[in-house]
Design a protein around this nucleic acid. Structure first.
Lengths: 340, 340
DNA sequence: GTGAAAGCGCTAACAT
DNA sequence: ATGTTAGCGCTTTCAC
C-alpha cells in the first residue's frame, strides 16, 4: 500500500497524491476529492520513513527526563516523586493532539555513562523538551553542541528557550494567603538552598511580608530536598527545637507529605493547630483528605506551552529566544484555618 | 555525512561499510578496522530513516494509553487517576534501558474520532503495548487487523499476548490479611460490576472466606468506578444505611482515597474504628499519612514484562501466545488495626 | 571478501 | 493543474 496505489485508484499521478497529502492548494477541488476518497477507501497512511528520508524531518519530538533517581521506585517516600514529569507529559500530549507530531520519551541519568541522551544523538527528533532535576551547565553545553531545537521546562539556560512558573510570584502568593488568613508564625519548608529556584521563591516571600509591613521574622525558611523524607526530617528538626508555627508552607507536594506525616505522628491537628499550604497541586494534594489548599504551579500548562514554543523553534530556528513565565494560581481547598 | 563518506575515507565501497555497521562476520578484520576508524574519525551516525525505509523496522515501540478521561486534568478526584500508566511506563523504560529500542507514547480516546490509534496506523512502530481502561472487542479487532505485534497490559484479549496481575490472588490476599487480623465485618469496594476483573477479584475473596470456613456474609461487596468520587459516594451510601464495617478493602487507590475522605469527614478514626486496606500501591498509598497497607499490583514489573514479551513477539511473530500472570504481594504499613 | 546495482516510498524541481 | 523524474541514504542480493 503505497502512494502509487492511491494514484492508480484515484486515476492521477503520485505527485498529485503527494500534493494532496501535504495540503498544497494548487490542486483542483475535484482532484483533491478523488484522492481523498481513495485514501479513505484504502486506508492509506504515508510511510514516515520515506518521508523522513527526503525531508529530513522526523515529525517527532522528544521529552527527556533528566533524573538522578535512577530507576528506584519512582515515588518512594525517600525519592523525588515524579509528579512534574507526569503532569507536564499530559500537557505535552494535549498540545500534540492537534499536530502530526508524536512524542518519544527517554529517561536520562548520568549514571548510565552517556554524556548526551541517546535520543538527542540518534537524530530521531526534530526537537526536544528537557525536564527534571539533573541540570548542569556541562550537560547543557553538550546538548547545545548537537544543534537541535531545545526547550527547557522548569529551568532556564541562557541559550535555550524555556518555560517555567513564576517562582517569585508563587512564593508571594503562598505567603500572602497565609498572612491574609491571619497567620504570623509561618514556616516555609523550601527546596534545597543551593538552588536558584529556592532563592526566587524566597524573594516572593519577602515581598509578601514587605507589602504588609511585617518583619521578616514572621516567616522562617528552612531548606530540604524535594522528597517526603526531606520534608519529614527537616520539619521534625524544627519542631524539636520547640518552635510551634501556626502555618507551614511546603516547597513541593513531596515535602508537604513529609511534613504532614510528622504532624500526624505527633497527633497535631490540621488545620486547628497548624495550617498547611501546599505547593505544586499534584495528585497528592487532590487526593489528600481533605484536599489540600495549594499553589498550582501549572505543570500541564507548562507542558503544553513548552510544546508550542518548541514547535515554533522548529519552524523558525533563528527566532529570538523565548523565556516564558507562567503565572501560578492559588487553589483554595482545605488544610488552612482562618486565624483572623 | 553519509555512508559514502565513510566508504571513501576507508577506501572501500559503501556495501562494505554497511556490512561492518550491521556486524556481518564476512568482513576481513583489517577492513573492518579501517571502516571503524573512519566512522569514529568522522563521528558518523547512520540515518535511521533510510535504514527504516529499507528494513521496515523502526526500532521503536509504542505505548498506547486507551483512555476515556479525554484530557481532563489527569488526576481530578472525579476521574480515574492515571497511576497505572505512570508506573507501567516506568517499568517499560526500565526494560528498554538495555535495548536499542525507543518508546513512543500516545493517548488514545475514542472521542478523538479515529477508530485506531494514530501510532498504529502510521507504522512508526515495530510493536505496541496497550494499556488503560478503554477496552472493547471492536477496538481490539480493529487493531488486530493492522497485523502489528501487540501486548495487552492489565487485560486479556484472545489474540494478543498479555501481562496482568493475578486478580483472583489479589482478592484472596487482601481479604485473607484482614481476616487474619481479626476483622469480621468487611466491606470490599470493588470496581465496576460489569468488569470481568471485578469478578475475578471477588473469586479470590470467596476463596479466602472458604479457606477459613467463614460465611460469605463476612464480606459485603459493593461496586463503583475507579475514581475518588466513586469510592466516596459508594461508601457513603453504605454508611448511611447504618452499616459499620470494621475494615474496608478499596478496589484501587483512587477508590480508597474516596473512602478515606468520607471517613475523614465523618470524623471516624482510622484504623481504630475502621481499618483500611488499599489496592494498587501507587504514589497515593506511599504518600498517605501514615502510609497505607495495601496489595501491590506490581505495575512496574508488569510494564517491564510487557516490554520483554513484546520484544519476543517482534522477533518471533508466530510464537505461541503468552498470557503472563504476575503475582501480587502485600505491603504491610499502617491503616489496618489488629483486632484479634 | 568486496563491489555494483537495484530499489525501499516518498518529495520537489521541473516539464507539460 | 498535473505528470515526469531524479534522488534522499541505506540494505541486500548477486557477481566477481
Amino acid at each position: 500500500m503505497t502512494i502509487l496505489d492511491i494514484a492508480k485508484e484515484a486515476g492521477v499521478s503520485k505527485s498529485t497524491v503527494s500534493l494532496v497529502i501535504n495540503g498544497s492548494d494548487s490542486v483542483k477541488m475535484e482532484t483533491r476529492y478523488k484522492v481523498e476518497q481513495a485514501i479513505n477507501k484504502l486506508g492509506y497512511v504515508p510511510n514516515q520513513a520515506a518521508r523522513q528520508l527526503i525531508t529530513s524531518r522526523t515529525h517527532t519530538i522528544g521529552l527527556i527526563f533528566l533524573t538522578s533517581n535512577h530507576f528506584h521506585k519512582s515515588y518512594a517516600f525517600s525519592s523525588v516523586p515524579e509528579t512534574l514529569l507526569y503532569d507536564a507529559s499530559n500537557g505535552i500530549n494535549m498540545a500534540l493532539q492537534d499536530t502530526d507530531y508524536t512524542l518519544l520519551t527517554e529517561r536520562f541519568s548520568s549514571a548510565g555513562g552517556d554524556s548526551v541522551p541517546y535520543l538527542i544523538r540518534s537524530r530521531k527528533l526534530d526537537g526536544v523538551i528537557l525536564i527534571g532535576g539533573l541540570f548542569s551547565d556541562e550537560l547543557m553545553e553538550q546538548i547545545e553542541k548537537q544543534n537541535l531545537p531545545v526547550v527547557n521546562l522548569g529551568r532556564q539556560y541562557k541559550h535555550f528557550d524555556s518555560v517555567a512558573v513564576d517562582l517569585e510570584q508563587a512564593g508571594f502568593l503562598g505567603i500572602d494567603y497565609l498572612l491574609e488568613k491571619g497567620h504570623r508564625r509561618i514556616v516555609f519548608v523550601n527546596g534545597p538552598d543551593t538552588s536558584s529556584n529556592s532563592q526566587k521563591k524566597l524573594e516572593g516571600v519577602r515581598r509578601a511580608l514587605a507589602v504588609r509591613g511585617l518583619p521578616e521574622s514572621v516567616v522562617s525558611a528552612i531548606y530540604t530536598e524535594y522528597t517526603g523524607l526531606g520534608g519529614y526530617h527537616s520539619f521534625r528538626k524544627l519542631w524539636e527545637t520547640g518552635q510551634r508555627p501556626d502555618a507551614v508552607f511546603g516547597g513541593s507536594d513531596g515535602i508537604t507529605a513529609g511534613i504532614m506525616r510528622y504532624l500526624y505522628e505527633q497527633g497535631v491537628a490540621i488545620p486547628d493547630q497548624v495550617s498547611i499550604l501546599g505547593y505544586e497541586d499534584s495528585i497528592l494534594s487532590e487526593y489528600a483528605s481533605p484536599a489540600l489548599t495549594c499553589i498550582n504551579t501549572q505543570k500541564e500548562t507548562m507542558g503544553a506551552e513548552a510544546c508550542r514554543v518548541l514547535m515554533n523553534r522548529i519552524k523558525k530556528r533563528r527566532a529570538q529566544l523565548t523565556m516564558l513565565k507562567i503565572a501560578p494560581t492559588l487553589i483554595e481547598r482545605n488544610f488552612v484555618a482562618d486565624r483572623r
